[in-house]
């Protein structure tokens, strides 16, 4: 299925070609994420190959792809959890793996992976968002105000003293969003956040994301649910080891990128609006 077998450097099917030369000086509006010709593999076979894309402040980008397409790996490369084998991954203009302004990135994982029988309240979870700011110190009253504001923003003030394990999936994900808000993150990275969340909460969850994006927070969504993606994201990156499509959501719906990336049986799971 792959369009080329050697590392020739050509990104076939990519709608947006990013410049291959590295610019040492950041432009006026510095991209939030800038990956260039990134290749990474856990073994000799690359999981992510020759991927280049740029995400600017305020964008709402979704990365879609079939299972094992490398979208979670690409996310890990973008936020510096892994170093690319080849190419460069920059976060806020700094090399992602060396990035040390961690509070600017809020991370929300699949809620299934965060399910633990740990006694911890919602407020204590949101408090963690302040840890990159306070280091070894204690939270000041200003920090606590930010925590409580974040709880209010996601509508979870009433649950502040609840144990996280007692929450529903949707409520728990809201708590994690609040943690990112408390950290005053400019970039929100969500890795399949609605897996195991009931349908009603999913809608409310995406409304929250849209509201935060409207306030200027950059949203990067890793998602397998294509219906949700075309309904909510402004821009879609379709990935299956390589980038098959990168552009506005409307164009993605009309293109054949999906069929090529997923194979023939893929179709939109939800109703697509115009």
């Amino acid at each position: 299925m792959s369009t080329h077998d050697t590392d020739s450097g050509s990104a076939a099917g990519t709608a947006e070609q990013t410049p291959t030369t590295m610019e040492s000086d950041a432009p006026a509006t510095e991209p939030v994420i800038d990956v260039s010709e990134v290749t990474f593999g856990y073994t000799a076979t690359p999981v992510v190959e020759d991927v280049s894309l740029t995400i600017d402040p305020g964008e709402y980008v979704a990365i879609v792809g079939p299972n094992g397409s490398g979208k979670s790996t690409l996310m890990q490369l973008m936020v510096g959890l892994r170093e690319p084998d080849r190419g460069t991954a920059n976060l806020f203009g700094e090399r992602a793996a060396r990035f040390d302004d961690g509070e600017r990135v809020g991370y929300v994982a699949q809620q299934a992976s965060a399910t633990k029988e740990m006694p911890i309240t919602v407020r204590e979870v949101v408090k963690m968002g302040r840890f990159p700011h306070v280091g070894f110190g204690r939270l000041s009253s200003a920090d606590w105000t930010i925590v409580d504001d974040a709880l209010a923003t996601v509508g979870m003030s009433g649950f502040a003293d609840r144990r996280v394990t007692q929450l529903s999936g949707g409520q728990r994900q809201r708590a994690f969003i609040a943690r990112a808000l408390a950290s005053e993150a400019d970039l929100l990275v969500l890795d399949e956040p609605t897996v195991g969340v009931d349908a009603e909460s999913v809608d409310a969850f995406y409304d929250l994301l849209a509201a935060l994006n409207a306030e200027g927070i950059t949203v990067l969504l890793i998602e397998h649910d294509l219906g949700a993606v075309v309904e909510h994201a402004d821009r879609v990156v379709c990935l299956n080891r390589e980038v098959y499509f990168d552009g506005p959501t409307d164009e993605f719906v009309d293109s054949d990128a999906l069929a090529r990336a997923f194979g023939t049986e893929a179709r939109f799971l939800g109703e697509v609006d115009g």
């Binding site: 991370y107 740990m118 968002g129």
Partner: peptide, 14 residues
């Protein structure tokens, strides 16, 4: 506490 509760998010936060 952060590392215990959510290792990945802790790593992302630096």
């Amino acid at each position: 506490l952060y590392v215990t509760f959510d290792e990945t998010a802790a790593a992302v936060s630096g």
